[in-house]
């Protein structure tokens, strides 16, 4: 009887706790299978030698994504060689933002010479599972998909030259040294992901 009460109380506690969507730092993220701009599907498990991942929810049209475009390319250039590649995902509903359609993604990836996957999250389920809200919104993951950093790339969207805190670089450097990220979570002004209306 006592046991039953405990179980029931536990169930009530679970039911009453607010549903929290998205990963927090320390959580283990889930892998995904999404279509890349070359038409092939990509999942994180395919990167056999990866020491971690820089998963970036991004898009074509957001002025912040444009401001950070070169910085994202540079992150991949610097860290893919060290085993921590960029994996970019666009979750914007093309019905709300025509410039974010798959065809436009293919164009942008070609034009900018992306050397990293640029994946389409058509159902928006990956963005929801991760708890992505903005573009660009970064999740640094360890090799075993533990989330070590969530947030902005750095502290100055306006000007790459004026940056004083490189959050993502610091988190990835720490990951490569087996240390915790010095800053684990940041916020930034940005474009909200264009969610499909329910």
């Amino acid at each position: 009887m006592k046991k039953l009460v405990v179980v029931m109380l536990a169930l009530i506690a679970v039911a009453a706790s607010p549903v929290r969507e998205g990963f927090e730092v320390g959580d283990t993220a889930t892998d995904f299978k999404l279509k890349n701009v070359d038409g092939k599907t990509v999942s994180l498990a395919e990167f056999k030698d990866a020491k971690g991942y820089i998963v970036i929810f991004d898009c074509n049209t957001c002025p912040y994504s444009k401001a950070y475009n070169q910085r994202i390319i540079d992150l991949n250039t610097k860290y893919a060689a060290k085993g921590v590649p960029v994996v970019a995902i666009n979750a914007n509903d093309p019905g709300l933002s025509a410039g974010d359609s798959f065809e436009e993604m293919v164009k942008v990836a070609k034009q900018k010479g992306y050397k990293f996957p640029y994946l389409v999250d058509e159902t928006q389920e990956v963005a929801k599972a991760y708890g992505a809200t903005n573009t660009p919104h970064v999740f640094v993951l360890s090799k075993d998909l533990k989330v070590t950093y969530i947030g902005a790339i750095d502290d100055n969207s306006r000007k790459a030259e004026a940056v004083s805190k490189r959050y993502v670089e610091d988190a990835v450097d720490a990951l490569l040294q087996g240390k915790a990220a010095p800053t684990t979570k940041t916020k930034a002004i940005g474009c909200g992901i264009k969610w499909k209306s329910a």
């Binding site: 903005n134 916020k187 930034a188 909200g192 992901i193």
Partner: peptide, 13 residues
């Protein structure tokens, strides 16, 4: 951002 509202992600609008 947190000083305006802790729940705010910074996304616009």
């Amino acid at each position: 951002i947190d000083k305006i509202d802790k729940e705010w992600s910074g996304a616009l609008p």
